[in-house]
Every structure is written in structure tokens, then in C-alpha cells.
């Protein structure tokens, strides 16, 4: 059992280590210094929380495209309160998280009441929240600075992340809601027949998601010190990378807990961006390079078991042939 665990740990770590080594070698050592990795770790925290927020809905085949807009609007409201009234850190944190909870839950309520596909509701809500962000913004960017960004610094950001990780770990693995989500993820119909209230589970997915989106908004603005005004549905940019993190997590799920897989996925994506930058790849090519690289990783991760099976089958066949001869 122990050897299996170690094997799994190695399998999970092989991806980030591979990405790290690749860029370390290609950039001739300019990428991957400890300070860079710490920065990468910090950059991973908020996207991972957004991934957790989206995870339950995504598992149940609901695409919540409004998650990015919830994060941006919550952060914008908090920053605006600081700008207008010079509020302190505690009320700021409460406003950002509170706004996230209210806005995220509202998305869920609308989904429940409207009974239209989740993606349609999410698009509508996303547009409304983006417009509200626009109306509330001062300029291209709304910034905060000084003590108000304390929660974005070490060790506070790590503590917040650790608390949220533990909370989600418990919710996802040890609560009735978590079991229901996993049941719905396998098959909504079977879950329904087994007595799971899919409606109630859907609502709780949004409610739980909203807590994590609010906290992600707090971490994001505290670490970055500013929040951009969304335009052209740019709030969805935030969530696409987080969705990729979830996909990597799902691919790694066979070797580790989904939550750890999602964290590793987001960390890899951040390393990928900084790695490509350290290679001097121009901005216009970075997206293309990230896309191709990500595809390679996903192909490898999803198919490595098949390759291993193929190799072991061939070995077995050879051995059988040998024995027959």
C-alpha cells in the first residue's frame, strides 16, 4: 500500500518537475530560481480557489461562466469602498467575501428559478456583473495599496489558502453534499433515482462556490493590488485558466485527491507562463505556445495509462510466446 502511495506521489510530481526541468534547461538556469517559484506559488493561490469554486458545478456538467465576473465585481466593490471611505482591512475583507457570497448565490438562485441551461444563465449574469463593474470602476484599473493589501502577503495568503483548502477538502470528501456532488457527477439520473435531490445539490454547489469566489477575490486583489475593469467579457479570461487547472486535476485524480490535482494543475499553468516568458517568447506567441504545451501535457496524462497497458501487454505477449516456444 505504501509503495503504491509513493508511486502515486511520484506520478503526480512528475508533471510539475518535468515542466520545471524543461524550462530550467531551456532558459539556461534563468527560470526556476527559488524566488520565482515562491512567486509562482503565490500566483497559484487565487486561481486554485476559483477552480475549487467551479469544480462542483463542472463535475455536474454546469459551466458557471459568471465566476470570473463575480470575482471581479466583488474585488471592485471592496476596492471602491476603500477609495471612497478609506475603510480598514477587516471591513474590506468582509465586504469582498460578502459580495462574493451574495453575487455567487444570486447566480445560483437565478439558475434554479429560470430553469434554462446553466451556461445561458451564467452568460446573462456575467454580462450584468461586468456592466456593474464598469459602472463602479474609476478607470482601466481600480487599485488599493498599503496595509489594505496585507492579506496578499506571506504568510497571510498561505494561511487563508490553507483554511479554504481544508474547508473544501472536508466539504468535498466528508459531507453529504460532497457525496451528492460525486454521485451527480457520475450520473444525475442514477443519483436522482437513488434519492439525491439534484436541485438542492445544484443550489448548494453555487452557494459553496460563492464562498470560494469571494475568498478568491480577496486574495486576488490583495496580491495584485488592483483589479481591472472588465470589458469584452474579459472576466471569462480568469476562469478559462482555472478550468484548465480543473482538467489537469481530473487527469491526475487517479493518482491523488482531486483537490491536490487541481492545485498542481494551476501551479503547472503558472510555471508554463513564466517559463515561456523566460524563454523570451513574444507575447503574441505565448498563448499559442501555452495551448500547444498544455495539449501535450493533457495527451500525455490522459493516455499514459494506455501506453503503459500497451507496453505491459506486449511484454506479456512476448513472454507467452517465449513460454510456448
Amino acid at each position: 500500500m505504501k509503495s503504491v502511495n509513493i508511486k502515486n506521489v511520484i506520478k503526480v510530481l512528475i508533471l510539475p518537475v518535468f515542466v520545471y526541468l524543461l524550462f530550467f534547461v531551456c532558459s539556461r538556469g534563468s527560470f526556476g530560481k527559488p524566488a520565482s517559484l515562491i512567486m509562482n506559488l503565490k500566483q497559484t493561490l487565487a486561481p486554485t480557489l476559483i477552480s475549487y469554486a467551479m469544480c462542483c458545478n463542472m463535475l455536474c456538467n454546469r459551466m458557471d461562466l459568471s465566476a470570473g465576473a463575480v470575482v471581479m465585481l466583488s474585488a471592485m466593490l471592496g476596492a471602491k469602498m476603500v477609495y471612497l471611505y478609506g475603510i480598514g482591512l477587516v471591513p474590506f475583507a468582509f465586504i469582498v467575501i460578502g459580495a462574493g457570497i451574495v453575487l455567487g448565490t444570486l447566480s445560483g438562485v437565478l439558475y434554479m428559478l429560470l430553469r434554462v441551461p446553466a451556461i445561458v444563465t451564467a452568460l446573462g449574469v456575467c454580462m450584468i456583473y461586468e456592466t456593474l463593474s464598469n459602472l463602479a470602476s474609476i478607470s482601466w484599473v481600480t487599485a488599493i495599496s498599503g496595509e489594505i493589501t496585507t492579506l496578499g502577503r506571506f504568510p497571510y495568503c498561505l494561511i487563508i489558502f490553507a483554511i479554504m483548502f481544508a474547508l473544501f477538502y472536508i466539504i468535498f470528501n466528508y459531507t453529504k453534499f460532497g457525496y451528492h456532488v460525486r454521485a451527480c457527477a457520475s450520473s444525475q439520473q442514477i443519483a436522482k433515482n437513488a434519492g439525491v435531490s439534484t436541485k438542492k445539490t445544484a443550489f448548494w454547489c453555487y452557494a459553496v462556490s460563492s464562498v470560494f469566489l469571494g475568498t478568491a477575490a480577496l486574495l486576488k486583489i490583495s496580491i495584485q493590488g488592483s483589479i481591472d475593469t472588465p470589458m469584452y467579457m474579459s472576466s471569462t479570461n480568469i476562469i478559462f485558466n482555472c478550468m484548465l487547472g480543473i482538467y489537469v486535476g481530473l487527469a491526475l485524480q487517479q493518482y491523488c485527491n482531486l483537490l491536490i490535482g487541481i492545485f498542481v494543475g494551476n501551479f503547472i499553468l503558472n510555471m508554463l507562463t513564466t517559463g515561456l516568458l523566460s524563454l523570451g517568447i513574444s507575447a503574441s506567441l505565448q498563448d499559442t505556445a501555452s495551448g500547444i504545451f498544455l495539449l501535450i501535457i493533457m495527451i500525455f496524462t490522459y493516455n499514459n495509462q494506455r501506453v503503459m497497458d500497451f507496453l505491459s501487454n506486449r511484454k506479456q505477449k512476448k513472454e507467452l510466446l517465449k513460454a510456448e516456444l
Binding site: M39, Q43, D228, T273, A283
Partner: peptide, 22 residues
């Protein structure tokens, strides 16, 4: 050190600083 043209400026600054400590 590199070029970035887009809309996610803060992230670009973070990425640059993480990719190259010089």
C-alpha cells in the same frame, strides 16, 4: 526582458518578475 501586449497588466508584471529575477 520580454514583451507583453494585452489587457492583464498586473499578471504580466507578476509573470515577468517571477520569470527573471534580474
Amino acid at each position: 526582458a520580454g514583451e507583453y501586449r494585452g489587457l492583464e497588466f498586473t499578471k504580466a508584471v507578476e509573470d515577468f518578475l517571477a520569470s527573471d529575477d534580474s
